[in-house]
Amino acid sequence: MSKIRVLVADDHDIVRFGICSALKTSADVEVIGEASTGKQAAAMYESLKPDVVLLDISMPDMNGIEATRAIIKEHPGAQILILTMHLNEEYLNQVINAGALGYLLKNADIEEMLSGVRMVADGKQVFSNEIARLMTEKYIRSAQGSNDHKPVNSPRLTRREKEILQKIAEGKTSQEIAEILFISPRTVDTHRANLIQKLGVKNSAGLVRYAIEKNLLSD
């Protein structure tokens, strides 16, 4: 059986050394290259064509996510495993969108890391338990939320914006609206500009049309 050839990228030498030492404890894994920036990792991918890339995220000169995108763009089948300190949803989104197969936390133990490498080498997705929990929470939240939030097909307007849109549609001037709502005319103008951008219309007339189409005139 041939060994799994791994490229390791991390900007901290000691951490990279630790990762490599951990990987070398297994007979079926072989570290064929080490990089300390994202750019270097992408370049080394070209020359080495490893089976698996272990990438840190926070690195100088192209972070791990950008490196993942760059590698996947050229080699859509590249098998990339992200190994990072960061535990939060935004990182998860970015990792998945970039096309990496797995996301492990750096406090993973050696067995977890090795089995992660093997699974990714096999084309399977792998996530640390804590990441998996994050995904589950996110799913539960969106499932619960889908009952009380209507599907969003038009931009969500705040209460204040709805009030102002209504008044604009009723033909009131900024000055009049300001007086009715006890806010400054300047704030009304800001909202007007925001509404135009939010709703993707050209001008105040567009706002009026929108309000009529969406039936916002009747209170």
């Binding site: 926070s58 996510i65 960061h86 939060n88 949803e89 935004e90 990182y91 970015q94």
Partner: peptide, 15 residues
């Protein structure tokens, strides 16, 4: 906030 450095303003605020 590391998200700010790694991904920029919008992801950081979303996060």
């Amino acid at each position: 906030p590391a998200v700010l450095d790694d991904f920029g303003l919008v992801p950081a605020i979303r996060n």
